[in-house]
Simulated assay, not measured.
Amino acid sequence: MATPAFLLPFTLSLLLTLSLTFPATGKPPAFLKSVSPSPFNLGTQKLSRFEFYWHDTVTGANASSINIVKPPAVNSSIPGFGFVSMIDDPMTEKPEIGSKMVGRAQGFYGECSQEELALVMSMNFVFMTGWYNGSTLTVVGRNPVNQKVREMPVVGGSGVFRFARGYVQASTYSFNTKTGDAVVRYNVYVMHY
């Protein structure tokens, strides 16, 4: 059986790595085995689009973003360079926090640039409704927050999103300059089976 096209780059990379790692014997280690994708019953690949609002609340008794690493005192034009926050942010259908919740964004972000306000983000979109209930999408990327639209990659997922790949576009819907609370609209485009 031929290797599916989506596995070809991974397979070639793995073979090259193994040939460089084990040149003397030419044999892969005992713990590594090739498997056929047919037991996964992947079905037809499809493209799905989601739109929801991400609520990052850094103040009050119900804060969904907690600072876990304070920025060190450094010479930087961005005073928060180096901070890290853990998040468990609600995701809703509409920009109002009281609208229907579709899931939670769980992970962390931190200030990663000394020249501009940019975050490195690592989060799972944990869906809690409908057919996608219990499934996740993983987003890891750079978020230059002062740009109108920011793009970050979807690098994987679980549940109905196994083998997922795609991208998100984030745009700030509202930002409270006094509290730091934000509502961000996410448009998600993901290929999955």
Results as ranks from 00 to 15, higher is better:
2 A>E: 07
8 L>G: 09
11 T>A: 10
13 S>N: 12
15 L>P: 12
19 S>L: 05
26 G>I: 13
26 G>V: 07
28 P>W: 07
36 S>Q: 12
46 K>N: 03
50 F>P: 05
50 F>D: 13
51 E>T: 12
51 E>G: 06
52 F>I: 04
59 T>N: 04
63 A>F: 05
65 S>D: 07
65 S>N: 05
66 I>H: 08
68 I>T: 09
69 V>K: 00
71 P>R: 12
75 N>R: 01
76 S>V: 02
77 S>V: 04
79 P>Y: 15
83 F>Y: 05
83 F>K: 03
84 V>H: 03
87 I>G: 03
93 E>K: 15
94 K>C: 13
95 P>K: 01
96 E>A: 10
97 I>T: 10
99 S>L: 10
107 G>M: 05
107 G>Y: 12
108 F>W: 11
110 G>F: 00
115 E>K: 02
116 E>P: 00
119 L>N: 08
131 W>R: 10
131 W>L: 13
137 L>T: 11
138 T>V: 11
142 R>P: 01
143 N>K: 01
148 K>Y: 14
149 V>D: 08
153 P>V: 07
155 V>G: 03
155 V>S: 02
158 S>Y: 14
160 V>D: 08
166 G>E: 04
167 Y>E: 08
172 T>D: 14
177 T>P: 02
183 V>N: 03
185 R>P: 09
193 Y>Q: 08
